[in-house]
Design a binder for these strands. Structure first.
Lengths: 344, 344
DNA sequence: ATGTAATATGTAAACGCTTACATTACCAGG
DNA sequence: CCTGGTAATGTAAGCGTTTACATATTACAT
């Protein structure tokens, strides 16, 4: 199939290229009859506008760049889904790139963004946010950050309200009557983790519940770290009655550790997580956790990015959106009798 | 940050645009001293080539299109990962699009591919492969199909050897001594499913094991269908001793049904799956299944696509690659005593 | 018919880069 | 000092659109 361009259509229709362009793009005025003729010819020739050329000329690509730290993860999957959907709705394409373990992350991102390939970028850097300011300042197109620390105030960001979610799920434990509540932390330098801990802590404080140092153990969001974290929490004389794992994967590790130790959930120890990954519904007992509206996160990011691109929002004015999280009450907190099984 | 183009560099360096281009692209001859000067200025001005313009001129975009039926699924996630990695290695970008439940699938795909936005496309259509021939024939750039039926012979495709995998896992059941083996099928029109059944059947035949009609129940690759499929298989007087679920999700449903009926796996009934999704390692007993090299699938697709783009492979010559699958022996077939738990 | 304002179309200049071809600079051998 | 060859650089023509501006056509009121 050979390529067909406007010139060919113009020739056949006996008009100039400009008229063809106007007819096809719908902008500008063209006599109805002429337009019809042009459209027919375009159809017949199976014409598709060359979006590269169009991009050059219009100085926009209708493409959004998405840079994520990784791809293989339920979180990112949902995120991409949300982003793609919203972009599709707005007739935009998605140029996807994972940052490949930050190998030369800054350089790659900049390269990416400044190449004129995209009209805007959705960027989720993991930890090291130090570069961010620089990236943003040197970038040539609007950027929306995902889950940026609250200290990043140089551009738009869409975030999850970790604090509120952690507060809620912790409070739920308290309402169950638990007073000895332990926590398995996420990575040190992780913003989400820090916020979750803040919410956890605040909920305890709000109810006058003490938090002994021994009830706080480190973790890193991996299943294994949850396993060991649980073991450490439960191997002391003073055992917690309930445990808040700062994410679901660690809760999963805790499940396994519990099973190893012959401890029943929630009878011997209640466990709650954070994230509401799919797995949390599949394991038994089902996991009480905090739902994070990931797809929504992606969609909102796209929406705001488009606003910036379309000039409805000022890219230079900082903007911060926090999406509320929702408590998902299942069995692991002790709420309902652990139903044997069910079709999910 | 204002945009800087070659003209500015040329002006500063006191040379022509052409020389700048040559210096920057590395092609063509430029005096070492001049090149150094130009590079320095480019650096200083923080110049990035405009890839759109470059694309227009060179008639290539260094971008690969990826069209998938969905995004949210472990399979696609891994696939995208493999594709992205390999593309990154070759300095290509990925333009991602899900086909949104085939809503006007053909049109979208064509639009996408023929817009000159990409140099080639990796396409995974789900069922209805009827359009494929047409899409391929009308396309303007090389295409690699993923998991295309063997009847599709109009272009390149990379596939998984479902037959061989099913044969292997079935044979494994036979070696366990099971003679009454049931199967829960995938969707009717699904190519993978058909191949898996063929392999299953062949393995039974090879060992002279009969397959009563009642041991074959329909399913559709969902967990729920696995649940009901299991129930149907086990609610007859003549019960199978082992069950081959054509994918892991259905095996998962079968697990739940078994638990409901108070049947132990593998003591009362062995279960094996296909796909080796992550979950298959997390459930207890761990699931014996067939590993599908998904990332590899993606990587291979990219590799061949690049060959076609670079003219090393003829896009018009059909090409078919089948990746072998691997048997993953875990607990659900009865192989090892069902260990209580372990850190995975 | 005629002038005026709208409407329809054409012309040509971008957009930022690559590249074939033309030109100039340079150097060695005669 | 000239000649020819090679290396370095310049010129300009694309690449396929969009779009500002110019021009041609039409419609309508007078």
């Amino acid at each position: 199939m050979k390529k067909v361009d406007m010139a060919q259509i113009a020739a056949r229709a006996g008009v100039s290229i400009a008229t063809v362009s106007r007819a096809l793009s719908g902008s500008g005025r063209v006599r109805a009859e002429t337009r019809r003729r042009i459209l027919a010819i375009a159809e017949e020739l199976n014409y598709r506008p060359n979006s590269i050329a169009r991009g050059l000329s219009r100085r926009r690509t209708d493409t959004l760049g998405v840079i994520l730290p990784e791809l293989v993860d339920e979180f990112f999957m949902d995120l991409v889904q949300g982003i793609e959907e919203e972009a599709y709705r707005a007739n935009r394409y998605i140029l996807l790139s994972s940052s490949h373990r930050q190998r030369d992350f800054l350089r790659t991102s900049l390269e990416f963004m400044m190449s004129g390939r995209v009209d805007g970028v959705i960027l989720m850097a993991s930890q090291r946010m130090n570069d961010i300011e620089e990236i943003v300042s040197r970038s040539r197109c609007p950027i929306v950050l995902l889950n940026a620390g609250s200290h990043v105030a140089c551009t738009a960001s869409v975030n999850v309200d970790n604090y509120q979610g952690a507060f809620a799920v912790t409070e739920h434990l308290v309402q169950h009557g638990y007073r000895k509540i332990g926590v398995i932390l996420g990575p040190d330098d992780n913003y989400d983790s820090a916020e979750r801990f803040r919410g956890f802590r605040a909920a305890l404080d709000a109810h006058g519940i003490p938090l002994p140092e021994s009830f706080v153990v480190a973790g890193d969001f991996t299943k294994t770290s949850g396993f060991y974290g649980f073991n450490r929490l439960m191997s002391q004389s003073q055992r917690p009655e309930a445990i808040f794992a700062e994410n679901d994967m660690m809760a999963l590790g805790a499940y396994e550790a519990a099973s190893r130790l012959g401890l029943r959930i929630p009878q011997d120890v209640a466990i709650v997580g954070f994230d509401d990954i799919r797995l949390s519904r599949y394991i038994r007992p089902t996991l009480t956790t905090v739902h994070v509206p990931i797809e929504e996160l992606g969609r909102r990011a796209v929406r705001y990015l488009l606003q910036m691109i379309d000039g409805e929002a000022d890219p230079h004015q900082p903007y911060r959106l926090e999406l509320t999280t929702g408590l998902i009450i299942r069995e692991s907190c002790g709420c309902s009798p652990s139903a044997p099984y069910g079709v999910v």
